Amino acid sequence: MAIIKNFDLASLETICKILGETNIGLSGTEITKYLSECGITDPQINSTKWKRLYDALSFKQNEDRCANNVCAFILHVMRPSRHVQKQEWFENIRSQLNYVLSFEGLEITESGELKPANKVKNFSEAEERAQNLRRSLLDRKIHPDVLFFCKAELLVDNYFHTVFEATKSIAEKIRIKTNLTTDGAELVDQAFSYKDKIPYLALSSLSTESQRSEQKGFMNLLKGVFGTFRNTTAHAPKITWNIEEQDALDILSTVSLIHRKLDKAVEARKIYEGSF
């Protein structure tokens, strides 16, 4: 690894606060374990978790005169295989860390690697992009569930993660409305398919061919969004799948339409008695 210059102490402090956050951060036992595994001395001067981390990492950075071992510790903590059972936690913490790391010109990828990123010089750059996107979406009367994802930390580099998170919200809403646990095309089929059974969710009474065609078309739209945007952003490196602002606006408008349809979708069993 090339020499990584010392992190600004304010950045390092914020990183330690994210990793040592009281409710969702690392436990004290985990901090001890990971510092030891990375060969970083734990001075244990402070009982507060984030302060312990800050003492250990700032001392190591000062001793090394570079941030390489600090970065190695962060990547050790954020190794994806360590968080298979808590992927939501991984993405949440990675997003917060990347917001801070952007001020150092770095980013943690989906695969848990460190790569150079466009360096943000101040908070206003990221906040301005978020506000501009939000204003444009408000002009389109976008669904509030989509506006939730217009966060500065998701827009530090480009619109990649905003689209990714927004499309994930579609599947989550379907799961909440149906209590199903699957994902992707399988979830769509289980929730909306009306062949030889009453579906979990229906856009209408499905009593006419036109209504049934609408239900089928909506299923295809959902599968298309998952396959084109969510699955691509989940697996493709961001550098090879760049999303510009206009693309993001159009994709998020589609996601908004889907959310409105889902809000109006009803449990088919409340409409019908018996089977189709």
Rank of each mutant, 00 (worst) to 15 (best):
H235S: 04
I176K: 07
N68P: 02
F226A: 10
D263T: 04
F192W: 00
G112T: 04
S213L: 13
V188D: 13
E104W: 01
L155V: 14
I174T: 03
Y159E: 02
Y200W: 12
G224K: 00
K261V: 04
Q211P: 04
Q211Y: 03
N92V: 03
P80S: 11
D247M: 00
K177M: 05
N6F: 07
L12V: 07
I40P: 02
P237C: 10
L114W: 07
S58Y: 04
E267T: 10
Q215P: 07
T240D: 00
Y54Q: 08
R212D: 05
E245G: 05
Q96M: 14
E37H: 11
P144H: 07
I18D: 10
V84W: 00
M1V: 04
T233R: 07
I251F: 05
E127H: 15
E245F: 04
Q246I: 08
R175V: 03
L19R: 06
W89I: 08
A171Q: 09
S256Q: 00
T181K: 02
F103C: 02
N132T: 14
K173E: 12
S111V: 06
G217A: 14
S124F: 15
S124N: 15
C16N: 04
V156Y: 13
L114V: 11
M1Y: 11
Q215I: 09
N158A: 11
K17A: 13
S95D: 12
T208I: 02
H76R: 09
L206Q: 03
R269I: 07
L155S: 02
E113N: 12
I198L: 13
T182C: 08
K33F: 15
K151Q: 15
H143Q: 09
C66Y: 02
K238R: 15
Q61V: 01
P199W: 15
K216H: 15
L262A: 03
D8Y: 00
S36Q: 12
T109W: 01
C71E: 10
F276D: 06
G227P: 08
A185E: 10
I198E: 06
T182W: 08
T167D: 06
Q87V: 13
N118V: 15
R230E: 12
I174Y: 08
V84Y: 06
Q215L: 09
V70T: 05
S136L: 13
P80F: 05
T254A: 00
N92C: 09
V225P: 07
Q131Y: 12
V100W: 03
F164T: 06
T22E: 10
L114Y: 10
N158Y: 12
L222F: 03
L57M: 11
N98E: 04
R260I: 08
E13V: 13
D64N: 00
K49S: 15
R269W: 06
S169F: 02
L114G: 06
I18F: 02
V146S: 03
F164P: 03
